[in-house]
């Protein structure tokens, strides 16, 4: 029992480290790819990591209108996101907290982070915070059912909401992507990943134009350590979305246990999958433009339609 607990604690530490270190790298890779696609050389892929270190060491400025919420929210958002990350498998079929929670827990932990970010955005009383917050909640509300439906199509295959079991079932179906219902679900989920990571065509992560920001708008009043935590949390959330996507749709090559060779290969394959997904995100972001705010629900409705279609096909066929 004690041994098990120590093992679990070790796994938690390991996965936390993976999340913390890998998230800025993935962000850096996406930024680098985007720069290349814009004919620029672009910053080093380590730049987001440097940025976070810089922010964490800096003093913060906080509004005189703000309350304790502004100071507390980054910590809550950050830890909630990491905890969610501990529920999602990375390169091994299960996650450290796999026994304690499931997909719904992941969604709601991310929801907790979103809740506090959106709330803290209103704390300083600036209209940009309100703007970002209200847009985030409007789109978030539409993303949520699309997210659930897309995951639901995957859960339906395994009859459970436990990610570990889903991965196990899915990794047995190597040719599943040829299955049309699976392909539809894949597309549906991809749209959700784009929306949840706040990328074009839903949000523009690079813009600092006051009036068009969504996620950036909510962070406008943050600086120093608090901003660092918030940005880090956003990057980890992006990594979690990719992890979820990998677990649900590209589970091949995951290690089944901790044998050193299997795990080594699995880590390599995991890195490759992440890099490919990151570059894919960059390509999509480059080739598309940001949609009109009120057209975004239509995109997510398309994702929902795809999910429903996927379920119908699964049931009928």
């Amino acid at each position: 029992m004690l041994e098990q607990m120590i093992q679990m604690a070790g796994w938690i530490v390991l996965q936390t480290a993976i999340l913390l270190l890998l998230a800025p790298l993935v962000q850096g890779l996406i930024k680098k790819s985007k720069a290349r696609l814009q004919s620029r050389i672009g910053p080093s892929i380590l730049q987001p990591s440097y940025d976070i270190i810089k922010y964490l060491k800096k003093d913060a400025v906080i509004s005189d209108k703000a309350s304790w919420l502004t100071r507390v929210a980054p910590y809550i958002a950050f830890t909630a996101v990491i905890t969610a990350g501990l529920l999602v498998p990375t390169f091994i079929v299960n996650a450290p907290l796999g026994v304690a929670g499931d997909i719904i827990m992941v969604i709601y932990l991310l929801g907790l982070a979103r809740f506090f970010t959106a709330l803290a955005a209103l704390d300083a009383g600036s209209s940009f915070g309100g703007m970002g917050s209200s847009r985030e909640m409007a789109l978030g509300a539409i993303i949520e059912p699309a997210f659930l439906l897309a995951l639901f199509t995957v859960c339906l295959l395994s009859g459970t909401t436990k990610l570990g079991q889903i991965v196990q079932v899915m990794s047995g179906k190597e040719w599943a992507l040829i299955d049309p219902s699976y392909a539809l679900a894949f597309l549906a989920m991809f749209i959700v990943v784009i929306a949840e990571t706040g990328r074009i065509p839903v949000d523009n992560p690079d813009t600092h134009l006051e009036l068009t920001m969504i996620h950036e708008g909510m962070l406008l009043e943050y600086s120093g350590r608090y901003l660092g935590l918030m940005l880090w949390a956003a990057e980890i959330k992006q990594l979690i979305m990719l992890n979820l996507f990998i677990s649900a749709f590209l589970p091949w090559g995951m290690a089944l246990d901790w044998s050193s060779i299997g795990a080594g290969a699995a880590i390599f394959i995991y890195g490759l999958k992440l890099a490919l997904l990151g570059i894919l995100l960059a390509v999509i972001e480059t080739a598309y433009a940001k949609m009109r705010l009120y057209k975004v629900p239509k995109l997510l409705a398309a994702s929902m339609a795809l999910s429903v279609l996927a379920v119908i096909m699964r049931v009928v066929m």
């Binding site: 209103l122 704390d123 909640m137 509300a141 059912p145 659930l148």
Partner: peptide, 29 residues
Amino acid sequence: GLAAAALGITGAFAAGGIIKHFGTAFLAM
């Protein structure tokens, strides 16, 4: 699945409503 999605959107709306009311009534100026 659809019912679960409906429940999901309900939860998100509820969160939005709480942020709206708490944020407007309690926060800022």
